[in-house]
């Protein structure tokens, strides 16, 4: 479903991705871990073209998104993304945040988009907040709305870029719960996170990145209890 081959990317002289390859199968939940600056967020952002790769290829459903003739707008409809800082549209209410994509991008009717949005809000447990503005919600609530906004596009894969890193500890659980139920429903997910518990429980595969490369990958069990590489061991010992 997702196939990244030898992706390289630099910001100025700073080489942040030194050839990253990763394949993700449908319904798989892949957790990417690594220290900050390891390139994991940049790699994730390459997967929906928010960052342009310098070289290498990325295929999503057999479409090469790194080809410069590919219409990225069409690709992004199918690739949902959830950001560390939520990035809800500040001038729109919760319901409008969710319906604007289906209405303005997919051309759905207002009624249809509204119905879908209410359904999604129920799913993330925020139905009663539909007419509030983002700045009236807690961080955890905002992130759940952001997940609903991405789901409203009916994506084939969801990318999560440190979705709980900006949250107060007591709000992490509510967001992880939503992600957990998404995974159970069979959504293909790539999650950049430091949440070991989540990775263990929900992840099919854990990928450890360091210094712009994938150092090691395996089942959560393998990575957390029996890491083979020194760098992985060091990282695991620090976050445990």
């Amino acid at each position: 479903m997702i196939d990244a081959k030898n992706v390289k990317k630099s910001f100025g002289k700073n080489l942040v991705l030194k050839g990253v390859s990763l394949s993700v199968k449908p319904k798989e939940v892949v957790v990417i871990m690594g220290a900050s600056g390891s390139g994991k967020s940049t790699f994730l952002r390459c997967l929906n073209g928010l960052e342009k790769v310098d070289s290498g290829e990325i295929y999503i459903n057999n479409v090469e998104i790194t080809h410069n003739k590919t219409n990225l707008n069409l690709v992004r409809r199918e690739v949902g993304m959830v950001f560390q800082h939520f990035n809800l549209f500040a001038h729109l209410t919760v319901i409008d945040n969710i319906t604007i994509g289906p209405i303005k991008v997919l051309g759905k009717s207002k009624e249809e988009a509204h119905r879908l949005a209410i359904e999604l809000l129920k799913k993330v447990g925020l139905e009663e907040k539909s007419n509030h503005y983002p700045d009236e919600l807690s961080g955890g609530q905002q992130q759940r709305v952001a997940i609903a906004r991405a789901l409203a596009m009916n994506p084939i894969v969801m990318l999560f870029d440190e979705p709980t890193s900006a949250l107060d500890p007591e709000m992490v659980g509510e967001v992880l719960n939503v992600m957990r139920s998404l995974a159970k429903e069979g959504m293909t997910m790539i999650v950049v996170t430091h949440e070991m518990g989540f990775a263990r429980e929900v992840g099919d595969r854990v990928v450890f990145m360091d210094d712009g490369q994938i150092v090691e990958e395996g089942t959560p069990q393998e990575i957390f209890t029996n890491p083979k590489q020194e760098r992985t061991k060091l990282f695991i010992s620090k976050i445990l």
């Binding site: 303005k104 991008v105 906004r149």
Partner: peptide
């Protein structure tokens, strides 16, 4: 207006114009 707003709009498939 922060860059995050643009990125979020792109991430749901909006064109530059939209």
């Amino acid at each position: 207006i922060g860059k995050g707003q643009t990125e979020a709009a792109y991430s749901i498939g909006m064109t530059k114009y939209k």
